[in-house]
């Protein structure tokens, strides 16, 4: 039983990981050999310079800076306004609170495309098209339902007595949030940072709609235009793709438990 199970799982895992290994293998092939038959699973010679050539072919450093600028701007918004909203939902009693909370959660189910066009027109009216603002500012308006939900659930697990004690010492809402709840919520905050990183690093539709200048491109956009220019240089394309994948892999292996925690929180919503 156990041997059979392991066999199935190993084959499955191999199929799962093979595309990534193939990406790396192709990235190390010399030019032209990606097109030979039969394909060389392991390159005869390792061409690490492909990464250098991919880096030289496009201003990846600039794209990286742009992507990180958007990420930092957006994640700060999510952390600041998300924790404020979550605090209100978890700790302050006000009429209609629960109905409002259900409404916030319901927006998770609302297809993003429906609000796409009015949002685009709104940002166009503000003359924000072709700036980073449309990709950053929305997270400053509550940080998204997922983040509010995650933080609220986390705040609910922190004993209310701690608030009371702080209040007796004369702390207001903001101080309770800042000095009592947030220091205890580091795992939840880290989850948000990690998720936001993957989200903004991978985001394609947002920059595709709002960014047109060459010098404001993000990595995802840059990689896409790379496909058009280097359509037959598969080794360089795969090298560029791998460069984009690598940071996500590092973050993923370093912060695995946060991914699992975040998903389990939302997945178990309502229970």
């Amino acid at each position: 039983m156990n041997v059979g199970l392991h066999a199935v799982l190993i084959i499955g895992a191999a199929v799962n990981v093979a595309p990534l290994l193939w990406m790396l293998s192709t990235a190390l092939q010399p030019s032209g050999s990606a097109l030979t038959f039969p394909p060389q699973i392991i390159p005869q010679s390792f061409h690490w310079d492909n990464f250098g050539r991919a880096l030289a072919a496009a201003p990846l450093g600039l794209y990286l800076l742009n992507t990180l600028t958007i990420f930092v701007g957006a994640v700060l918004g999510a952390l600041v306004t998300g924790s404020l909203a979550a605090y209100a939902f978890a700790r302050i009693r006000f009429p209609g609170r629960d109905a409002l909370f259900v409404l916030v959660i319901a927006t998770i189910m609302l297809p993003a495309v429906v609000t796409l066009i009015p949002q685009f027109i709104e940002f166009r009216t503000l003359h924000w098209v072709d700036t980073f603002l449309p990709l950053i500012v929305p997270t400053w308006l509550g940080g998204g339902a997922f983040n509010i939900f995650l933080l609220r659930q986390f705040f609910m697990t922190i004993p209310y007595e701690l608030d009371e004690a702080a209040r007796l010492d004369g702390a207001g809402h903001l101080q309770i949030l800042w000095r009592v709840l947030l220091p205890l919520s580091k795992p939840a905050l880290a989850t948000i940072v990690v998720f936001s990183f993957v989200l903004h690093w991978n985001d394609f539709l947002g920059p595709l709609i709002y960014i047109s200048s060459a010098n404001k491109q993000t990595l995802a956009l840059g990689l896409y235009s790379f496909v058009g220019e280097y359509a037959t240089h598969w080794n360089l394309l795969m090298a560029a793709s791998f460069l984009m994948v690598l940071p996500v892999l590092v973050i993923f292996f370093a912060a695995q438990r946060y991914f699992v925690r975040g998903l389990q929180f939302t997945g178990m919503g309502g229970r």
Partner: peptide, 8 residues
């Protein structure tokens, strides 16, 4: 695979 950048 679920964290892979979609474009890549």
């Amino acid at each position: 695979p679920s964290v892979m950048p979609t474009v890549a």
